[in-house]
């Protein structure tokens, strides 16, 4: 059901490194967003995959040939600027059309949609996900959790959200999860995905608490059916600890 790319090969026929791009860390990096890059690289290397992490600042052109693109959170001004530059650059659209994985959190998630609000104005998004965002009645700050769409075969999503937006999904995307704690998109659903493009309001290093989601992104990027299991002692304890703090947890 998802577009999968086989691993790329260099001229000598060797499998080349997994290329993970952190998009515009100068604009989209509010709070620990670097974590998603570090976690994906760590988990890929633990499986013996070579990784080529890349940070591309906003004045520079994005490469079109990367395997995974990561978008972080950002304040209003930088978010609007990032959307403008990504639309002008066009590389992310071409990469996505070619099957590259995009994982976005918070402001980065909003700008993947058709439009979003920043500094009191509506801005055109990248239109890579069928959704739009506006301002909510209050800021959503706190733990965010809920069961993930069963088709993704992932355990409960857990994260921390901090945003003033509300996101309305169109018919072409699926919600990532149903909300049992926190607000997410609108208090009922959280995040969205379509093909290999996935966004969430679980902000910052969302993959730290959701290692299975990290592995899913790696599977999409490499075309692997499954990855060798890793020691999850500490991630399991962290997840259990966080989920236990929730009402009814």
């Amino acid at each position: 059901m998802f577009s999968k790319r086989g691993a790329d090969y260099d001229r000598a026929g060797r499998e080349s490194a997994l290329r993970i791009v952190w998009v515009y860390p100068d604009l989209l990096s509010t709070y620990g967003d670097q974590g998603n890059l570090l976690i994906l690289a760590h988990r890929a290397r633990a499986r013996g995959l070579a990784v080529q992490p890349l940070q591309v600042r906003s004045p520079d052109r994005l490469p079109e040939q990367a395997d995974i693109y990561l978008l972080g959170g950002g304040e209003d001004g930088p978010q609007a600027l990032a959307a403008q530059r990504l639309n002008a650059d066009g590389a992310l659209h071409r990469a996505s059309a070619a099957g590259s994985v995009i994982f976005a959190v918070c402001a980065g998630y909003q700008l993947l949609g058709r439009s979003f609000f920043a500094k009191g104005e509506r801005h055109p998004g990248l239109d890579l996900l069928d959704l739009h965002s506006d301002r909510g009645p209050s800021r959503a700050v706190g733990e965010l959790a809920g069961p993930v769409d069963p088709r993704l075969s992932l355990p409960t999503l857990t994260g921390f959200e901090n945003h003033g937006g509300r996101t309305h999904l169109g018919p072409e995307v699926n919600p990532l999860a149903r909300v049992t704690a926190g607000v997410g998109n609108d208090g009922a659903t959280e995040g969205a995905f379509r093909g290999a493009v996935l966004g969430t309001y679980a902000h910052g290093p969302a993959l730290a608490r959701n290692p299975a989601l990290a592995d899913l992104l790696l599977c999409w990027a490499t075309g692997a059916g499954q990855l060798a299991p890793l020691d999850e002692t500490w991630t399991d304890r962290l997840r259990a600890d966080r989920l236990a703090t929730l009402p009814g947890g």
Binding site: Y31, G32, G35, L38, F160, G204, P205, W234, R237, D241
Partner: peptide, 30 residues
């Protein structure tokens, strides 16, 4: 919110015997 832990580069601690504790020791551990 403990997200900021991922803004800190902990690699200068490599080679030092490190212990972790506190309410959010598991966040630190990961």
């Amino acid at each position: 919110d403990t997200s900021w832990l991922f803004d800190v580069d902990f690699t200068p601690l490599r080679g030092r015997p490190v212990q972790v504790t506190g309410d959010r020791a598991y966040d630190l551990a990961v």
